[in-house]
């Protein structure tokens, strides 16, 4: 009886502790967001989106930065999504018992925890120098693809694992081959979870700064990239650059750019959440 009461009190105490922590986090985030929006929202207008960078804060825009981010987003998606999903299918459905698969598995789990700047150094060595791609969009998106591959692979494997053996067995019993079962049953059943994982991974890529700086992405790019071999900048680098300038006008520009980057990432996360909720509804 006494013990039970003590446990109940502990239970309550922990609950309130958790709620307090959560609110503290949200509060800090709210203060930050309020500050940013307060500073930056009035700076957002058509010119800001379509102007090239400039040394005068009032004239400077983010055209090269957001087009660069879109380029990086698209190229990284093209490289990382098929490769990541294919690797996950191999590891989860085919290569289960080989020593090679085991080795890959250990590496992938570890890679997910490597700091992003290390990927930058790897990208600098392999893509920029060895392959001679320079500080181009291609080098940048290859590097970011490496960075998010482990995330996509892990998320996809979890999604594939969630398709129960009994439904796979039913597919085999109807005369389906292994690949037919994967293509017609397993992938459609896990697609929404895979998409969610992929979107979250891409959202991460879009926010990365350090590895791109390491491979030589520039803060000042006076033209919009036309091919994947062009030099580029991205939103986070532009923001980083503006924040480090002394003029107050650039701080305001940075705040405005942060709002736009945040909006982009929020929309992506929103889509991921929406897909998840819709998939849940469908399966119940």
């Amino acid at each position: 009886m006494n013990n039970l009461q003590r446990n109940k009190i502990k239970d309550k105490a922990f609950k309130y502790f958790g709620v307090t922590c959560t609110f503290f986090g949200i509060f800090i985030l709210g203060v930050f967001l309020f500050g940013i929006i307060n500073d930056g929202v009035s700076r957002i207008n058509w010119d800001f989106l379509t102007n090239l960078p400039s040394y005068r804060p009032k004239k400077a825009g983010i055209l090269t930065a957001w087009t660069g981010t879109l380029w990086i987003f698209g190229l990284t998606a093209i490289f990382a999504i098929p490769l990541g999903i294919a690797a996950a299918i191999y590891l989860e459905e085919y290569g289960k018992k080989s020593w090679f698969a085991n080795l890959l598995e250990i590496n992938i789990t570890n890679l997910a925890g490597v700091p992003s700047i290390i990927y930058g150094i790897l990208g600098l060595e392999i893509f920029v120098r060895l392959m001679g791609l320079g500080g181009s969009l291609l080098a940048g998106s290859f590097t970011l693809s490496l960075l998010i591959l482990p995330v996509i692979i892990v998320a996809t494997r979890e999604a594939l694992k969630a398709v129960p053996l009994t439904t796979r067995t039913a597919s085999y019993a109807l005369g389906a081959t292994k690949w037919q079962t994967i293509w017609n049953l397993v992938l459609p059943a896990s697609l929404s979870s895979i998409i969610t994982g992929v979107i979250l991974a891409l959202a991460r890529a879009v926010g990365e700064t350090a590895p791109l700086i390491v491979i030589g992405a520039l803060a000042y790019v006076p033209f919009v990239a036309k091919t994947p071999l062009d030099e580029f900048t991205v939103m986070p680098i532009q923001i980083f650059n503006w924040i480090s300038r002394p003029q107050h006008g650039f701080t305001i520009n940075a705040a405005a750019a942060i709002i736009i980057l945040l909006a982009f990432v929020f929309v992506m996360n929103g889509i991921a959440v929406y897909i998840r909720i819709k998939a849940k509804k469908k399966s119940h």
Partner: peptide, 12 residues
């Protein structure tokens, strides 16, 4: 063909 102990429809 085979019918199993536990119904195992596809999630379709």
């Amino acid at each position: 063909g085979m019918v199993f102990q536990k119904p195992n429809p596809f999630p379709k």
